[in-house]
Amino acid sequence: MNIYEQYIEDLIPFAEDAIYEGDYHLAHKLLMSGLTEEPGYPKLHYTMGWMHHYYQTNEALAERHYLLALHFNPNYIEVYEDLVELYWSKRKYQALSDLMVKAEKCDDIDKDYVFGVLGKVAETQGEYRKAIGYYRKALMNSVDNHVTKELKQNIKRTRLKRFKNNWRWQQQS
């Protein structure tokens, strides 16, 4: 670890403490000084995005810094999780699908999470067959009993929606 990396790694906890204390101006100043030294440091961008997302509710800046963090480190799992949450809250389904396709290529992220999110996006958009397919892929990649149970419930719910949707269509004919 070189001197700049050590400086930045030491700087981030100070900025986080300032965020927790509500001194966003100081936190922003600290993070920007780090970005001035090392503009491509993913953890700085993540921390900046995290601050804007959860504490200052500036979703545009949060998204920008999250995407920059992913640009500099495509395997940054926490960024994917926070960006998924941001996109869900804003109902940006296409961006969410694109993000999960990118996340699928990441070796460190759980594939059951990726396919589960893709399934929820497809289900939300009324693409029930596609959703069931993603849920099944997620089920095949799952190693957690709780997640497996939840995925089975998702498949059951989506099948019911698909049946009801097809039944209504037939009733209207």
Rank of each mutant, 00 (worst) to 15 (best):
H45A: 05
A95I: 04
T158N: 13
Y46Q: 05
N58D: 15
K130I: 11
A138S: 15
H65T: 12
A60F: 06
K111R: 13
R129Y: 04
L96S: 03
L70W: 09
I77V: 13
L67S: 05
N75Q: 10
K156W: 03
R136C: 00
E127N: 14
D98I: 01
N154H: 14
K102Y: 02
Q125M: 09
R91N: 10
K102G: 01
M48E: 12
I132A: 04
L139S: 06
L96P: 06
N58Q: 12
Y87D: 07
Q153K: 08
A103G: 08
Y113E: 03
T148F: 01
T158S: 14
D82T: 02
Y113M: 05
Y55P: 01
K90D: 07
L83A: 13
K92I: 01
T57A: 03
R91F: 04
E127K: 15
A138D: 13
V121R: 03
H65D: 15
K120N: 15
V84L: 08
E78R: 14
L118S: 09
N75S: 13
W50E: 06
L68N: 00
E123K: 13
V114R: 02
G116F: 11
K137N: 10
H71G: 02
R129T: 08
E85I: 05
T148H: 05
D108M: 13
G133N: 06
D82M: 01
N73V: 00
N154R: 15
N154V: 01
D82R: 09
K90Y: 10
V101N: 10
W50L: 04
L70A: 08
L139K: 03
L70E: 11
K120E: 15
L99V: 07
M48W: 05
T148N: 09
L61A: 14
H53L: 11
V121W: 03
A60V: 09
T57C: 04
Y66K: 10
H53D: 15
L118Y: 00
L118Q: 14
R64C: 01
A95M: 07
H53R: 14
T158K: 03
G126S: 05
N165V: 00
D108F: 13
I109P: 14
N166M: 11
D107I: 11
R91W: 01
R157Y: 06
Q125P: 00
V143Y: 09
R162P: 02
N141E: 14
Y76I: 03
W88N: 12
S97N: 10
R129F: 04
M140G: 06
K120D: 15
V117E: 08
L67G: 05
Y113Q: 02
L70G: 10
L68A: 05
A62G: 07
K92E: 15
A95D: 13
W88I: 12
M140H: 06
M140S: 07
E123P: 02
T124E: 15
G119H: 02
A62H: 04
Y55E: 09
V121S: 04
V84M: 12
K137M: 10
N145E: 11
N141D: 08
E59N: 15
V147A: 12
H71D: 07
L160G: 03
K149V: 07
E59S: 14
A62T: 10
D110W: 07
